[in-house]
């Protein structure tokens, strides 16, 4: 588990990496930036390149074509970084675990720090998950 410094709690750059999602979790993540929830006031920003990111939001069940790519993205991200499994497909694959093409939940492939279940998790749940993590880092360091 990567530990991030206390200074990271005020400013997080977020990169959204989708494995094999149904798109719902991705839309709810983008909804966090929309005017109703607005995470920019909490210091979080969406960035376009994994090198700029501190938080990797990973959605979707991982299928065979994507496995080595998600590992590559994790390696390309500048450390320290936090990996968040958003949605029940990333946490535990739900109905797709019987499929011939999926490779196991996300934590078998890259180390995961936060799990946010839900199908899809509401934007409030995503923000609450990140806020809980920030609080736990503040208390620890």
């Amino acid at each position: 588990m990567q530990s991030i410094d206390n200074k990271f709690t005020k400013s997080l750059f977020v990169f959204h990496a989708a494995c094999s999602p149904c798109n719902n979790c991705d839309i709810e993540i983008l909804d966090c930036i929309a005017p109703k929830y607005d995470i920019e006031r909490l210091g979080m920003q969406l960035v376009g390149s994994p090198r700029h990111a501190d938080v990797l939001l990973v959605t979707g069940a991982v299928n065979k074509k994507v496995v080595h790519r998600i590992k590559m993205i994790y390696e390309q991200t500048a450390k320290p970084c936090v990996v968040v499994a958003v949605g029940s497909c990333a946490c535990s694959e739900i109905i797709f675990r019987e499929s011939y093409n999926t490779c196991g939940p996300l934590d078998k492939i890259i180390p995961v720090d936060i799990y946010i279940p839900g199908c899809p998790p509401r934007p409030e749940a995503i923000i609450a998950g990140l806020a809980k993590y920030i609080k736990s880092r503040k208390n620890a360091g």
């Binding site: 094999s20 999602p21 979707g60 069940a61 299928n63 074509k65 994507v66 109905i95 797709f96 019987e98 499929s99 011939y100 093409n101 999926t102």
Partner: peptide, 14 residues
């Protein structure tokens, strides 16, 4: 394409 193939048609048979 093929990055999101999850085998839905096969799961549906069960």
């Amino acid at each position: 394409l093929g990055y999101i193939h999850r085998g839905t048609e096969k799961i549906s048979e069960n």
